[in-house]
Design a binder for these strands. Structure first.
Lengths: 192, 192
DNA sequence: GGTTGTCAAATAAACGGTTAGTTGGTTTAT
DNA sequence: ATAAACCAACTAACCGTTTATTTGACAACC
């Protein structure tokens, strides 16, 4: 009984920072930058909202930190296979379905941070790399050259997210398997 | 000379309403609901902001009015041809390029008005009609049945907007013709 | 082993500016 | 004259950010 009864009440800057980041992720995914409330983030993280300013600077920088942390995960967790774009589309479909925050955050970012020039770490780089990888697969004969590498990448991303809940058509949620199969087949036809 | 000297200063409720609606369209397209400022809308429309409340009720209802007025235009101005989905995709591409507000407004709507249940007039209806039209074209043999009618509609919309400025990949703006052709070809492969 | 100094972590409270919405009166067309 | 269109000024609430202060961990020292 000497130390402390509640380990959650222990002082730990890194843990608090992480809790704030997680709470901010949910808040921003739900309401965007303009709609997010700093108070709610503090409450959700069980931390004082002033810590947001000591750890992240301000609301916008907190959003940027969220983007860097969470959106970049897509790039790492979904292996890219330039020679098998249909397979990639399927894996991306699965990932977006399992991580519904990602697509919303990315969409908020596109809408609310156009001019600032701040891109999540490595996103532009990753796009370029993927484009080049496809182009190489095309010159190697693995992938047909009916479309440019850029077109193929953009269309694959568009198709993989076409059936997501954030999309114009609200998916019922029960035809997921059928939708996934349709997405894969659609991309297959692009590289047929 | 009795009537009025300055047509701009004439009192015309309908014209004022229209100006407010136009100003609101630009403001909402740029900043969304949470980020939009009622004062700015008033200034831009050269009208007193109190008129917003007499004519539209409140900020959210003004947004709904904007959606009803502008987004529904897509449904009317872009003729739908279930037997020629590639052509429809091309026309939709042109329309979205010429009316950049539309896609942004639609995106804001999806992100910010999920629960309210308010759908722009006739959007859901139009989707259903288009789906049925495609299904009919399929049973008639005009369109292959490799995909469901819903899949075809969703993919066509996704591909037509894949290269828009709002999309993950920022289009340079100079390859528009090539991108358009690629979109049409991609949809052609879905119904090949 | 207990006391004390020190610094980071955490907090409560407020500040200053902003914003959606209102009111009460003035102008204008008919 | 009357009703509708319009406007300047106001209000009450909200919200991002800062400040002053407290709390806890840990090590140096006796």
């Amino acid at each position: 009984m000497s130390q402390q009864a509640d380990p959650a009440r222990t002082r730990d800057a890194e843990a608090t920072r992480a809790r704030l980041l997680q709470a901010a992720t949910e808040e921003f995914a739900a309401h965007g930058i303009a709609g997010a409330r700093v108070d709610r983030i503090g409450v959700r993280a069980k931390a004082n909202k002033a810590l947001i300013y000591t750890y992240f600077g301000n609301k916008e920088q907190l959003f940027d930190a969220v983007m860097d942390t969470h959106v970049t995960r897509v790039l790492d967790e979904v292996p890219f296979t330039p020679g098998d774009l249909p397979g990639y589309a399927g894996r991306l479909f699965d990932f977006l379905l399992a991580n519904p925050h990602q697509l919303r955050l990315a969409t908020w970012h596109r809408l609310e941070r156009p001019s600032t020039g701040h891109e999540p770490d490595g996103l532009r780089t990753s796009m370029r790399q993927k484009t080049h990888a496809i182009a190489r697969a095309q010159t190697g004969g693995q992938v047909p050259a009916a479309f440019t590498a850029e077109d193929l990448l953009v269309f694959t991303l568009a198709l993989a997210s076409a059936w997501m809940p954030t999309s114009p058509m609200a998916a019922g949620g029960q035809d997921v398997e059928r939708h996934r199969a349709a997405v894969v087949e659609a991309v297959r036809r692009l590289v047929a």
